[in-house]
């Protein structure tokens, strides 16, 4: 347990409001190293329940690295070391007692390129519930699959061909399938790593609409290269630069009156 007394008592260079009233995830003084190289420097931020927060910043600024710390996906990289504390519901996720498997079931993830398994649409969505034993019968599993596909807006398009391969769908449909697959395990938080960067504008619009819908029930952290996208969908925006969290704040404020010069430079298109 992270004690309540010191979580809001933290030294930080970040400009803006890093704290939230109802924090789901609390990150304090997080450093990430790839071998000798430091990719994230002293980042502290809260992520609230049912908020959509976007991470923006130039390429290589560490926003994806930081995102992958939140569900310990960086564990798969041998040279990666994480320091500082990240807690989910006030439990340190890097504690030895935490089972990374259950953690990742609570924090779902959607990746940059749509990556459906080479299995049927049904099997793709049913994969998570199956390995976590979330259903006790075929009917229950069918119900979960149907609901997840409905929530991801894909049900009407695929309900007649659930047994055809997921890789046969279009790019946008594949990405929504991946979202359905992530929400099928009923996570509390969904991390999205540039989910629209491989999609065309129409598919992107559909995903953005879907993210807005999902924001009512889940906390969503989205890394994006598109500032317009961040402006359209997120309530809060965090600007990263060279591994540091420069500025956090309400999206409107960040985009209209950024306090930091670097943020302003990025938003007005001078760096990035």
């Amino acid at each position: 347990m992270v004690s309540n007394s010191n979580i809001n008592n933290v030294k930080t260079k970040t400009i803006g409001e890093i704290f939230s009233k109802d924090p789901k995830i609390i990150c304090r003084n997080v450093d990430v190293f790839y071998g000798e190289k430091q990719a994230i420097k002293d980042v502290s931020i809260d992520i609230a329940s049912r908020e959509i927060i976007s991470f923006i910043g130039p390429s290589g600024c560490g926003k994806s690295t930081f995102l992958r710390c939140l569900n310990r996906m960086n564990d798969t990289i041998d040279t990666c070391k994480v320091k500082g504390s990240i807690s989910l519901d006030k439990e340190d996720i890097y504690d030895e007692k935490i089972d990374v498997v259950t953690l990742r079931a609570k924090i779902g993830m959607v990746f940059q390129k749509p990556n459906p398994f080479p299995k049927s649409i049904y099997e793709n969505v049913a994969y998570g519930p199956k390995i976590h034993g979330l259903s006790s019968s075929k009917e229950e599993l069918d119900f979960i699959v149907e609901n997840s596909l409905k929530d991801s807006g894909l049900w009407e398009e695929v309900k007649d061909r659930l047994q055809s391969p997921g890789t046969g769908l279009s790019g946008g449909q594949q990405q929504r399938l991946c979202i359905a697959r992530a929400i099928a395990v009923s996570p509390e938080i969904i991390l999205m790593d540039e989910p629209c960067s491989a999609l065309d504008p129409i598919a992107t619009a559909k995903i953005e609409e879907l993210i807005n819908q999902l924001g009512k029930n889940y906390s969503i952290v989205i890394v994006t290269h598109s500032m317009q996208q961040a402006a359209r969908i997120s309530q809060r925006t965090a600007y990263f630069h060279l591994g540091e969290l420069i500025e956090v704040g309400e999206t409107k404020k960040i985009f209209t009156m950024p306090k930091d010069k670097q943020t302003e430079a990025y938003i007005s298109g001078r760096i990035g």
Binding site: V101, M109, P116, F117
Partner: peptide, 27 residues
């Protein structure tokens, strides 16, 4: 087998063994 498939498996909370038997071997 693309790393993205492995990531997808791990991201859903599979253990290494589950990723191998359910994702990598079928692929």
């Amino acid at each position: 087998v693309p790393q993205s498939l492995r990531d997808a498996g791990y991201g859903l909370g599979s253990t290494k063994n589950e990723v191998i038997t359910n994702v990598i071997i079928p692929a």
